[in-house]
């Protein structure tokens, strides 16, 4: 198993040249598995700054199970977006009693969006157009979790939608 040795900075992790090369080797393997250039480049760039993302890339390199690899890819994509945030922000509080209603709203929204995706070539084609890995899009459509606004915008652009067709009030 590969391991990474980090020298902790004040706020960021700095990895050794050897460990960087390990990440680059895995990145090449990711490209050979048809993950987009945009995703792989963003993954490596984020990993150079965030130790947890580097850990996930190493896990992917060590993993043989395709389903587990897909889960790791979806996690990396989530973190790439999280790590791009600048500063702090606040979103509306969701009362526990409203969680089921919110989840149903999100489910309904994602189902309607998935219908459009299916009419325009399916998730595989959407992955090609957006550069978002297919496992990440599958997780997006299969879960009731709140979507990232940046993901919605990429999907809308790829589908030539002028605006997301339903409310995106719960987008992160």
């Amino acid at each position: 198993m590969n391991t990474l040795a980090y020298q902790k900075g004040n706020l960021q992790s700095q990895i050794s040249a050897h460990d960087k090369v390990s990440l680059f080797h895995i990145a090449i393997e990711m490209r050979s598995q048809n993950l987009s250039e945009e995703f792989v480049a963003n993954a490596v760039q984020t990993a150079l700054e965030f130790e947890g993302v580097a850990d996930l890339i190493i896990m992917w390199g060590d993993e043989a199970d395709p389903e587990e690899r897909d889960e790791i890819i979806a996690d990396i994509q989530d973190l790439i977006i999280d790590c791009k945030q600048i500063g702090t922000s606040e979103l509306p509080y969701v009362n526990f009693n409203d969680v089921d209603t919110v989840a149903k709203d999100i489910r309904s929204f994602k189902d309607s969006l998935l219908q459009i995706v299916a009419e325009r070539g399916g998730i595989t084609k959407l992955a090609e157009k957006t550069g978002i890995p297919q496992p990440s899009l599958s997780r997006f459509f299969n879960s009731n979790s709140m979507p990232h606004r940046s993901t919605l915008l990429k999907i809308a652009k790829a589908l030539d939608l002028d605006a997301i067709p339903v409310s995106t009030q719960w987008a992160k």
Binding site: L11, Q12, F50, E51, G52, C83, Q85, T88, E90, P92
Partner: peptide, 14 residues
Amino acid sequence: TYTQLIRNGQYTTR
């Protein structure tokens, strides 16, 4: 990663 983001002041609260 989340703990590092919190230390960096890059986070969203709800």
